[in-house]
Amino acid sequence: MNWESVWRAVRRNPLTLFGGCVVVFLFAMALSATVLPIPDPYVIDADAVLEAPGGEHPFGTDELGRDVLSRVIYGARISLWVGFVSVGIAIVIGTMLGSMAGYYGGWVDGLVMRFVDVMLCFPTFFLILAVIAFLEPNIGTIMAIIGLTGWMGVCRLVRAEFLSLKERDFVQSARALGVGNLRIIARHILPNSLTPVMVAAILGVAGAILTESALSFLGIGVQPPTPSWGNILTSGKDNIQIAWWLSLFPGLAILLTVLSYNLLGEGLRDALDPRLRGMSG
């Protein structure tokens, strides 16, 4: 992977650039939440329940009188955190299994790919629901299960990369020099197969944020009082006719974030991996 080409690609396509800027902005916002001049997102105000935007509360207040703007900003931390960790888990599992399958081939490949096939047969959301509700809907479980059910795509991508890369000259010569398998995988093949993984990761973050909001809708997402965009939006849903601000702002936040991640991910894919151009799915 070559950072210069990434930058060139981003600069060339305004949509990708837009996505990238929003992603950077969200990060900055999430990281600086504690130093921003906003009210404490946990402070309850019994006299300001469900107040419309304006004055002290530019985004209004929620059903406990808490400031929605702060909650949306702090929610960014949680939602992005869920996105990153769960995708991280998926990437690690997918890359490990995919590189094993692609490098060793034979029965290892057969076993891993059957496992992938089995996992792909499950309606993922059903699996996630079952595990979360059976364990406990805390943020750790949610991240773990989204990761554990989301690695199959990465696994296939990495395997495909390995299948083609392992026949290349530099790998063959490393092998001829007696370099160990693990070293070949880690030093020679893996770094060359990371582009599609990165793209998949960026798209995966978007998916994880949406999954968390769907879980929140069912009441088993990130639990209050911790704000996540999903659970703010869900409390907005129940009050949608009297408190539009409670669903509009977190809804827009999700929309904008997922949109930006998708734009960035697809833009990078188009630029870095011409074989995959346009094949979003």
Partner: peptide, 11 residues
């Protein structure tokens, strides 16, 4: 397409 991907469906 992008909006379709990005909007929480229950909302």
């Amino acid at each position: 397409v992008y909006v379709g991907f990005a909007i929480p469906t229950f909302w």
